[in-house]
Design a protein around this nucleic acid. Structure first.
Lengths: 225, 225
DNA sequence: ACGATTATTCAGTGAATTCTTAATTGTGGC
DNA sequence: GCCACAATTAAGAATTCACTGAATAATCGT
């Protein structure tokens, strides 16, 4: 990174001040990735347009193919990123030593808040399910890995049952799907629900009420007899 | 599948020699409607192709525009039809005099089975929510009507509370969304869930188990204290 | 300094896509 | 039988689409 290099062109040697490299593959790739995430989440795979992606990424269509191969592979990378972001956030929760009831409450609240904060995750998953899971199946990056929450729920259930606060014999997978379903559906179907049920489902008050509700539902379903 | 019928043409009583008329606007419209339902459900609005619709309907692109105006209006009619089919089926249940617990069980089972039998309904709704509900908002046919189940649930809850089998003060809207969520999510996300959780979620055994599970969850959440 | 490699820019290409103009054909009313 | 109109064909305009070949420019190892 020695300066110097005074050549014929007036390309002034950039002093110590912020020198933004004219070419930065990683940054370009990142901008395309971000733009693609937004585009696929907004329009689904079929409705997404590569020219809108490259435009928003302030680059050219060609770069999309240079860095990602084609539209489908780009979608796959975006989807993988969405899963990895969620799982990383789930890992960070660390409920290994939490009180079972408090821990489960926290897990439910986290899941709900993640959906609220990341509607693009939900839209990407919906697009992937519309495509019958072809991209997760082909993905080498997410493979057959799965949410850390499955084993965390298993652990909480086991400890809670030993303490006598939860029923024994609760299926962790079913519980996981239940928690996901109650949050996911509400966010995913917010527009049709809002239209037909009238009320503003996404105001702060309504959101808090829904979290309280799903927490009650889940806890009631596994409470010790 | 109920298409949007504007025309009140009464089909001529067919003479003994059942002759198929060379032109039958209603039948053509119906074929386009059916093909469009399938296409929109398979690929979403953005991924749907009008030439695939007209081809499957065994007619020409032009007829789609002749009968429905454009792709978007056709989607709207398809979506309206999907809602009306569901609501009509819900009406037919008639739980007005059912025992509250048995009635609610039946309502849950019906909702679940409807989703299982009509994945296209779920896909259409997902596409509509991807579009932020623009079509339901513009629809004159479904307007601000809503599922008959809201008032049926209200009724069951009121009677169940009076009989002392349900808590009082349960919000019918929340209960409705809860029941819908638990069935909808499972079917909507079947491909990603199946991939990451391994098991075959849609085998008969798994389906029955899930219905039993959501029934337990819902009933536990409203059981009298 | 210089060649090799990587990254970016540019200018398409052919196929696909929605929708239209317009000719043609069948149907029911009289 | 004949007409007005509804319904169907047919052909294509206009545009958009995903994707590519190739020239150019920056960067790096040596």
């Amino acid at each position: 990174m020695t300066p110097g290099r005074k050549s014929r062109t007036v390309r002034k040697a950039v002093p110590a001040r912020s020198r933004k490299p004219k070419r930065d593959a990683e940054a370009t790739r990142e901008r395309i990735f971000a733009a693609a995430t937004r585009e696929f989440a907004s329009h689904g795979f079929g409705g997404a347009r590569v020219d809108r992606i490259s435009k928003r990424a302030k680059t050219f269509d060609r770069m999309l193919y240079y860095h990602f191969g084609n539209k489908e592979q780009l979608f796959r990378v975006v989807l993988e990123g969405a899963y990895e972001d969620l799982w990383a956030a789930e890992e960070r929760l660390d409920l290994a030593r939490a009180d079972p009831v408090a821990g489960l409450r926290e897990l439910i609240a986290f899941t709900w808040q993640y959906y609220v904060d990341h509607p693009e995750f939900i839209r990407l998953l919906n697009s992937e399910n519309l495509q019958q899971g072809r991209n997760v199946r082909r993905s080498t990056r997410v493979g057959k890995l799965s949410s850390p929450f499955i084993r965390i729920i298993s652990d909480l259930l086991a400890r809670g049952a030993k303490e006598g606060v939860f029923r024994s014999g609760v299926d962790p997978l079913k519980l996981y799907i239940t928690i996901a379903a109650l949050g996911y559906f509400y966010v995913s179907n917010r527009y049709t629900l809002t239209h037909f049920l009238g009320a503003d489902l996404m105001g702060e008050k309504a959101r808090k009420a829904w979290l309280a509700h799903i927490t009650d539902v889940v806890l009631a379903s596994i409470a010790a007899a």
